[in-house]
Every structure is written in C-alpha cells, then in structure tokens.
Amino acid sequence: MHSITELLQQLVYGLSLGSIYALIALGYTMVYGIVKLINFAHGDVMMVGAYMGWIAITVFHFPFFPAILFAMIVAAIAGIIIERTAYKPLRNATRIAALITAIGVSLFLEYGGMLVVGAQMRTYPNVFPETMYNIGGIIFKFGDIVMLVTALVLMLLLHFTVQYTKIGKAMRASSFDMEAALLMGVNVNTTISATFAIGSALAAAAGVLYGIYFNSIDPLMGITPGLKAFVAAVLGGIGIIPGAMVGGLVLGITESLVSGFGASTWRDAVAFLILILVLIIKPSGLFGKNLREKV
C-alpha cells in the first residue's frame, strides 16, 4: 500500500466483490430469519443462477436485463422446489437434520450440475461495453457500476417488499412467531416458499453479475462465495436484513485490503478468522440486539 489512491482503488475492488457477497448473504439471512436453517445449498443456487444467465445470454441471446430476470425466475422456482422437497418434510425435525440435508442438497447441486453441464469452465461473453473510467488515478469499469447499482436496486426492492407488502408483513410475522402467525391466518407454507424464492432469486442475480464480471463459471463456483456470504451474514447478525448488506460489503472490502497489504495468502484465512471472532465476541453480529424484529 503506497498511497491514498491505491487505498481507494482497493476500496473500489472491495465494494464490487462485497456487493456480490451481500446479495448472497441476504438469502442466507432471510431463510435463517424464518425457518432457523443455515441453507448451505445457497451458494450453489447462485451457481445455478449463473448458468441460467449464461444460457440466456449465449443460447437465447438475451440482453443483460432479460437474462438476469430469466436467471432469477428459474432460480426462484428451483429454490421453491428445494424447499418443498428437501426442507419442508423436516420442518419439525431437529435442526441438525435440516442442516445436514442442506449440505446434501449442496453436494447434489454441485455434482449434479457437473453431470449436466460438464466440469469444465464456461466463459461469459462480453455483455457490457469495456469502457474504463479513470477518476484521479482510480480506475473502474462500466461493469463495476452496473454491479453496484444492480445490487443496490435489488436490496432496495427487497427492503420495500419486506416492509410494505402483504407477503413482507407475513414474512415478518412468521419470523417473529411462526405459531402465532399461523393462528392469525397467515399461510406459513406460502410465506416460507416465498422467502426461499426471493432469496434464491437474489443469489441468481449475484451469480449472473459474478459470471459477467469475472467472465468464467464452473459447477463448483458457488462454494467459496457461498461460505464467504455466510460469514458476511453472521458478521452482520444472522436473520437481520440490513446486517447482511453491511456484512457483505465489510467482508469484500476487508478481503481486498488484506490482499492489498500484500498478504494475499492470508485473504481467506482472515475471512474465516472474522467468523470465529464474531462467534466468540458477539455471536448476534454487528446489528444483533435482543428481541429485534427479524426476517
């Protein structure tokens, strides 16, 4: 790290990576908020989304927005199917049973994906113009802006959905007390499915952005970002939506600063060290408070 410019440059890299983590972390946190399940298959849903986007762009020749929408819809359906077949039968089972099932679903998606699309990496075509911007020595490209803007728009949409729509109210009610919500006439099954659908759609959006930005995808691409997003969700306070957003951005920036200080070998270690420290010092996360309303 030699100068302020370089520090700012690393911050830009951290923000673009962090917005991906944040989008994935949202899905983790929403699902946890409602059914108290760490959905370890979530990173792989992101991979499914990335492949759907890739198919939409290379096979159907969709432009960016229809492609990301297509990926989000397919992933939402996949999310609902996963919830209905794998998690719903275990809703009253021990939490460890559901957790192990989640790992099973994760492996199923990874290696099933390998069987269907092959293990080799695929390259995303160029979707955005390769325009470069240089502001005071800080360089970023068109893709950086699209990534950040798309992530922000989706997060705002999510915030709006959760706060001001009927389904959002149902989600908040189910998260607060599932049985009471049930007694009040909230259709808890639909609400849980909707939560999985929204979380999966956000992961798919992250997958498409990730694929376009780093232009290569493979069936195991979801593992590392999935784990990092989990760290981000815990860092922000699992079950808390703004926590996931902030946690993702903080983690992305931390990683890029660690590499920027010349300790790239330590990058992943630092990410998981954060997880350990949060769990020891403040298990409820940065935004965690007692009795906080959760979704």
Binding site: Y13, L17, E255, S256, S259, S264, D268
Partner: peptide, 20 residues
C-alpha cells in the same frame, strides 16, 4: 512477487500491488 490460488476470480488486489 504475489500469489493467488487456482479457482480465484478476482486478481485485482494483488495486481494493484504488482502495478505499484
């Protein structure tokens, strides 16, 4: 001299150091 791990997608932080 910088390092990465096979499977990484984001190389910019290390490249920024090489550049400087």
């Amino acid at each position: 001299q910088e390092k990465y791990v096979a499977g990484d997608k984001d190389f910019r932080p290390q490249l920024a150091r090489i550049k400087s």
